[in-house]
Design a protein around this nucleic acid. Structure first.
Lengths: 104, 104
DNA sequence: CTTGACACCTCGATGATCAATGTATAGATC
DNA sequence: GATCTATACATTGATCATCGAGGTGTCAAG
C-alpha cells in the first residue's frame, strides 16, 4: 500500500469526507510530508470504492454536488494492518534517534 | 524522499555496506514492508554518491569486487530530517490506534 | 462581472520501482 | 570436472504511482 492510500484511509477513519477535503486533511495530518494532489486521490478513491474499502453518497451543498466517502470495515482492517507495520518499523527506527543526535 | 531512499540511509547509519547487503538489511529493518530490488537500489546509490550523501570504496573479497558504501554527514543530516518527519507523523498516527482497536 | 474558493474530473508526462536478464567468481555437491 | 547455488555488480523495458495542467460548473465577495 502506498503512503497516499494509507493516509487517505487514515483521515477517513476520523470522519466521512469528500475528496477535496481529504487532500487538505492528509496534508495536515502528515505535516505537509505527504500531500497527494487531485490527480492522485480521485483515482485512488474510485479504486477504494470498487474494492469495498470505502462507500460514498452524494450530497448537494448550496448547489454544489459532493461525493462523501465513508470508510468500511474492510478499509479499517486494511488500515489497521498498515498501521501495525508502521509502528513495527517505528520501533526499529527509534534505535537510530540517538545515533543521528550524536552526529548532527 | 522516497521510502526506499530513507531506509537505505537508515541501514547505512549502522555500518558501511555493499549494495547487495543493503537490500537484505532494508528488508530486515522494515520487516519485509519495504524491500527495494536491485534495479531500485543501484540507481539510488549512484544518485547518493553523486549528491554526496554517501561515499564508496572498492573492496575485493575472495576474487569478487565490491563497492562498500559509507554514509556522509550530508547523508546523516538528510536522514535526520526524514526521521523527524517520521516521528512527527507517528505521533498523530498514535491517535488512530485506539480507534482501529475498537472497530476491528 | 471578474476573481477566488469550492468541488468534481481527466490526461499526458514524469518518476519510482520491479522483473528479467546478463556477467563473473567461489564454493559446495554430485 | 561439471553443475548448481550464493554472492555481487549492473542494465533494460515494463509497469505503477504521482504530479501538473487543464477542463467543468457553482457560489460569494469585491
Amino acid at each position: 500500500m502506498s503512503l497516499s492510500k494509507f493516509f487517505i484511509l487514515c483521515v477517513l477513519l476520523e470522519r466521512p469526507m469528500h475528496g477535496y477535503d481529504i487532500t487538505s486533511a492528509v496534508e495536515q495530518k502528515t505535516d505537509g510530508c505527504c500531500s497527494p494532489k487531485e490527480g492522485t486521490i480521485y483515482p485512488i478513491l474510485r479504486q477504494f470504492a470498487d474494492g469495498g474499502y470505502v462507500t460514498f453518497y452524494l450530497e448537494t451543498v448550496s448547489g454544489r454536488e459532493r461525493k462523501v466517502y465513508t470508510i468500511t470495515d474492510k478499509g479499517r482492517k486494511a488500515f489497521k494492518i498498515g498501521l501495525e507495520e508502521w509502528m513495527k518499523i517505528t520501533k526499529s527506527l527509534e534505535l537510530c534517534v540517538p545515533i543521528v543526535e550524536r552526529c548532527c
